[in-house]
């Protein structure tokens, strides 16, 4: 095997690929299962955006916290939340990560540093300032990452949090996952500045923009600002430009898109294809290695769906528990 030109050793590359592939297949499968009518409520799929969450999360440990969004499955998987529990949660089963009480939009696993997907846009930003504050007091070198979409970047909570993180010099990273749309509304309508870097600068925060379909671009940019934050350098802002493969939620007709946009995204902006081509061309990983992972991932997703379908529903006694620690 030739020299590895990448900033990660082969096992880590395989791990990153496995995460991305797991997210992709998890979402592709949900797309199918949702259409069958088996999945209650609404689900927002992260397919197409995998490189962002994974590229960032490869730098994190359990002590580092993330605050996710309504489009949270990818963040969960990248942060190490068990796929089986997530699937069961989405099916509303008692064995789910949140015992069926939260659902797709509220999956959390605090033991893994995952502070929850969130149904309220921008709500993660103040929370992650708190995580940063706690890390600072504990002095454990932990960081907090808050994700939000281009749409949610206009929430007052996000803007207030940027200022707070700056003046308190918190170990917090603000990540805007810019997929160009908030529901059906284009970022061109909703964002006044041309660049998020300019906006971050207005808050006294350094900003960087990367191609979010390129795992390595995300990984490298995130590495630098996370390291800086761990070392007391304060908050930073990261923009990952990306595409979402599916509609805003399942059932979205997507007539707001340009003609051929989805096909173009699948063909040329697929972060998994891009990753595969880079690592195989460099001769670091073979197609066969990746195919093997593909098979394992598919089998795991299949098993998790079957298990979720079989698992028991919560019952009456679960309705009233978990409201308070003690009341």
């Amino acid at each position: 095997m030739s020299n590895n030109p990448f900033p990660l050793p082969k096992e880590k590359l395989l791990e990153a690929y496995t995460k991305m592939k797991t997210i992709r297949e998890f979402e592709e499968r949900l797309h199918i299962e949702f259409a069958k009518g088996d999945i209650p409520g609404f689900v927002h799929l992260y397919a197409g955006e995998e490189a962002s969450g994974t590229g960032i999360m490869m730098h994190l440990e359990d002590k580092d916290r993330i605050a996710s969004t309504h489009r949270g499955h990818g963040h969960c998987i990248a942060k190490g939340v068990e796929v089986e529990g997530m699937m069961a949660e989405i099916y509303g089963k008692a064995t789910g990560s949140c015992r069926g009480k939260g659902g797709s939009m509220h999956i959390a696993d605090l033991s893994k540093g995952m502070m929850g997907a969130n149904g309220i846009l921008g709500a993660g930003a103040p929370l992650i300032c708190g995580a940063g504050l706690a890390a600072k007091f504990r002095g454990d070198g932990g960081v907090g990452i808050t994700f939000f979409g281009d749409g949610a970047s206009n929430q007052g909570t996000v803007l207030e949090s940027m200022n707070l993180a700056a003046i308190w010099n918190l170990p917090v990273i603000f990540v805007v996952e810019n997929n160009g749309y908030a529901e059906s509304t284009s970022i061109d309508y909703a964002l006044a500045v041309d660049s998020y870097i300019d906006r971050a600068a207005g808050f006294g925060i350094p900003g960087v923009t990367v191609d979010g379909t390129d795992f390595f671009a995300v990984y490298e940019a995130a590495g630098e600002i996370i390291k800086r934050a761990r070392e007391g350098g304060g908050p930073a802002f990261l923009e990952c430009k990306m595409v979402r493969f599916f509609g805003h939620f399942e059932g979205d007709a997507q007539t707001y898109r340009a003609k051929g946009e989805n096909e173009e995204n699948r063909a040329n902006k697929d972060c998994l294809k891009i990753f595969r081509s880079k690592v195989t061309k460099a001769g670091v990983i073979s197609d066969a290695d990746l195919n093997k992972i593909d098979d394992q991932v598919l089998a795991r997703i299949e098993a998790s769906v079957q298990k979720a379908k079989r698992d028991p529903l919560p019952t009456q006694k679960d309705l009233l528990t978990d409201v308070y620690v003690r009341y």
Partner: peptide, 20 residues
């Protein structure tokens, strides 16, 4: 309101949503 017409600023249809 948010997406009460929908499609604003994009290259597809305007009034794409009419709310969720």
């Amino acid at each position: 309101g948010e997406d009460i017409a929908g499609g604003s600023g994009g290259q597809g249809e305007m009034d794409a949503w009419g709310g969720p």
